[in-house]
Design a protein around this nucleic acid. Sequence first.
DNA 1: TATAATAATTGACAACTGTCAAAATACAAC
DNA 2: GTTGTATTTTGACAGTTGTCAATTATTATA
Lengths: 193, 193
Amino acid sequence: MKIDVTQHLTLGAKRTLKAFRLAMFESLSEKEFDKITVNDICKKSEYPRATFYNYFDDKFDLLQYLWSYIGKDILDKIPRDGDGETGIVKIFNLLLEFFNDHQELLANITKNNGADSHLWHSMSGYLRHEADILVFEYCKENDQVKVPVKLLARFYSDLIIAVLEWCLFEQPEINSETADEYLISLLNGGFNV
Amino acid sequence: MKIDVTQHLTLGAKRTLKAFRLAMFESLSEKEFDKITVNDICKKSEYPRATFYNYFDDKFDLLQYLWSYIGKDILDKIPRDGDGETGIVKIFNLLLEFFNDHQELLANITKNNGADSHLWHSMSGYLRHEADILVFEYCKENDQVKVPVKLLARFYSDLIIAVLEWCLFEQPEINSETADEYLISLLNGGFNV
DNA sequence: TATAATAATTGACAACTGTCAAAATACAAC
DNA sequence: GTTGTATTTTGACAGTTGTCAATTATTATA
C-alpha cells in the first residue's frame, strides 16, 4: 500500500480508493483472481493505470486492502479484554457468523476458486494475522505456561483458521455447536480426549 | 508444472530440469525472490524463455519443484507407520534436524527475505502439505476422537510448522529438548498445563 | 476569492510475461 | 544405418507490468 489509510484522506483519495475496491470486488465475482489484470480494474473503475500504482503496489496489495476494509466489520465486534479459551471460541464464532451473514462474499471467493486458491489464502492470511494480535492480548496474562506467548498465540490463531476453513469448505452444513465442539476438542489436544 | 516428473524422463529433460533447478537455487543466494525474473533464470541456465515455459507455469512453479526436489531427502527418512503423538514429534525432529544440517539452504531463504517472505511461505507450504499426508496416516487408526480425521491431521501439521518456524526464526539457538517440550505442551493444549 | 502548497492524475516508456507454430533434435523399430 | 514419430527447442509476438516526470486539480490559509 502506497498510502496510509489510517491517516486523514482527502475526498479525492476516498473516491479513488472506493472505485478500485468496488472494481476488484466486482471482478472477483466475474472471473478467477489469477485472470484479473490491473488493466481490468482500471477499465472498470475508469482510472488510468498510473493512478492505480499511486495507491497500490500491485493487485495483491489491492486485495489485501479489500480484506482489511471488509474485515473492519468483524474486528469491531470482538471484545479486546477476553480471557484465554473463552476469548478464542468467541473470535471463532464471530468469524463463522460473519461468513454466514455474507454468503455472497464467500460465494465470490469459492466461485472460480477453491479453498486452495490464492484468493482464500490471502483472506485467511489477513484473518489469521488479526486473530493473532487479539489472541496475543488474551495470552499475555497467562504466565504459567511453558511455551513463549508469541508462539502460543500463533498456535491458537492457526487453530481458529483451520477449524474455520473446515466449516466453510469441507462441512458447510455444520451447526455452530458441533463447530465449537471441534474447536474445543483440538484446543485440549486431539489424541488425549 | 507442465510435465510429470514422477514418470520416466529422457536424458534431455533431466538435463534441462537440472539446469533450471540450479539456476534458481543460485539466484536465491544472490537476490531476493521477488527480484528474480524468468529472464534471469534463462540467462543463467542458457536456455531460451520458451524452454522454461515448456516445463514450468512460472517462477513460483519452479520454486515449488525445487522444494520438492530438496524435500525428497527428508521425506525418505520418515517412518510411514508411526503412532499418533510419537509420530508427530518424530516428523518435527527430522525437519528441525534437516535445517540444522542444511544451514546454507536456510541462510539462502533468510538472506534477502525474512520468515514472512514469499520464499519461506512457499517452502513451509510444501512441508506442511507433506506433513499433512503423513500425519493423516498416523491419525487414521485413532477412531475414538470427536474431530474429523482430516481436520485433526491439518491441525497437527499446522502445529509442526508453527513450532518449526519458531525454532528457525525466533529462537535459532534453541536446543532440541526445549523444542520438543514446546511441541508436546501445545499438543496437549496450551492453557491447561 | 486569490494564492501558495500539497496531493492526485496522467501518457508514455522499457522491461517482463506467457503463448504460438515452426524448426531441430532425440528416440525406437525395422 | 535408415526411417518415421515423438519430444524438445526455438524466435517472434501481443499483452501486461511498474515507473517516470510533467500536468492538473484540490486543499488550507490569508
